[in-house]
Amino acid sequence: MPHLSGGRIGFGAMQLPTSPEGRESSVRLLRRAVELGVPLIDTAYLYGGGANEELIAEALHPYPADVLITTKVGVSGSGQLSDWRLDGRPDSLRRQVDGCLQRLRLERIELLQLHRVDPSVPLADQVGTLAELAAEGKAARIGLSEVSVDELEQARAITGIATVQNRYNFADRTHEPVLRACGRLGITFLPWRPLAHEGGEVEAVAAELSVTAAQVVLAWLLTRSPVMLPIPGTASVSHLEENLAAGRLDLTTDHLSRLAAGSP
């Protein structure tokens, strides 16, 4: 598990506007996130074709020592998301990583993640290339995204895996076996889309505690495993502050029992 200072709720930067009219507010939000002790900021080459990475560098470089900046590679394209495709070819991964380093103004990416496994390229070639890049000093740790337990084990046979970033939330626990495996192995689990939920008991508990439903599901996520580190994203400073406050929300045994009874 990467050494992380601060709390257990990170920040997903995907939603931040990078356009000239929205850039100033995005920079303010990123700096506020650091002020509030966010331990990890997640970006990716896919997010605006690197524009999101450039925004983070503009706002935060030189990066504070207690904030881990992570990015993801393994896709190619331009323009709309529909125009992008999985691309885990070794030469392409190398080009993508070099681009990430330049945009983030780094010599080494502290956590480099494979955005998706490209089914047209052997997993060993994709993970092996990232391991080679780490050996060359271009990455400190390697992570995976949207993988199965079997794929995680295959990757671990090649190199150490620090993180797994899979979709996981109150409404969708498809990757519960992966979360359990990460807990057993001490691998940090970064659930994306962590705020998704279905009303009912979540709303009832939120009303009882005078908090938001988003805060309840984030607090609930933190109870699921000690390796859990949600990365909710927002373009609103007030929502950022609300999300991070969820790390101080204590759900009682009764709350957890009621949430379990009302879960999918």
Rank of each mutant, 00 (worst) to 15 (best):
Val67Gln: 09
Glu132Gly: 08
Leu130Pro: 03
Ala157Ile: 11
Arg85Ser: 13
Glu146Phe: 05
Ser92Glu: 10
Pro122Leu: 01
Trp84Leu: 00
Arg89Ser: 06
Arg95Leu: 13
Pro64Ala: 08
Gln154Gly: 04
Leu101Ser: 02
Val121Thr: 04
Cys100Glu: 08
Pro119Trp: 02
Val73Glu: 06
Gly74Met: 08
Pro90Ala: 07
Val67Asn: 03
Ala139Thr: 06
Cys100Gly: 08
Pro119Phe: 07
Val127Asn: 01
Asp125Ala: 13
Ser145Met: 05
Pro62Trp: 09
Gln102Lys: 15
Arg156Thr: 14
Pro62Leu: 00
Gln80Tyr: 09
Thr70Pro: 10
Val75Tyr: 11
Thr71Ile: 05
Ala59His: 00
Pro122Gly: 08
Asp125Ser: 13
Thr70Trp: 01
Val149Asn: 12
Thr159Phe: 13
Arg116Lys: 07
Lys138Val: 11
Ser145His: 09
Ile158Trp: 09
Leu144Asn: 07
Leu114Glu: 04
Gln154Asp: 15
Ala124Thr: 14
Ala140Trp: 03
Thr71His: 01
Leu123Asp: 07
Lys72Ser: 09
Gly137Phe: 07
Gln80Lys: 15
Ser92Gly: 00
Glu136Arg: 13
Leu86Ser: 13
Leu101His: 04
Pro62His: 02
Glu146Ser: 14
Asp118Glu: 09
Gly143His: 08
Arg156Leu: 15
Trp84Lys: 09
Ala59Lys: 01
Asp87Gly: 10
Ser82Asp: 14
Asp91Pro: 07
Gly74Pro: 09
Asp98Lys: 12
Val127Met: 02
Arg116Ile: 03
Glu153Leu: 15
Arg95Ala: 14
Asp125Phe: 06
Ser76Ile: 01
Leu101Pro: 02
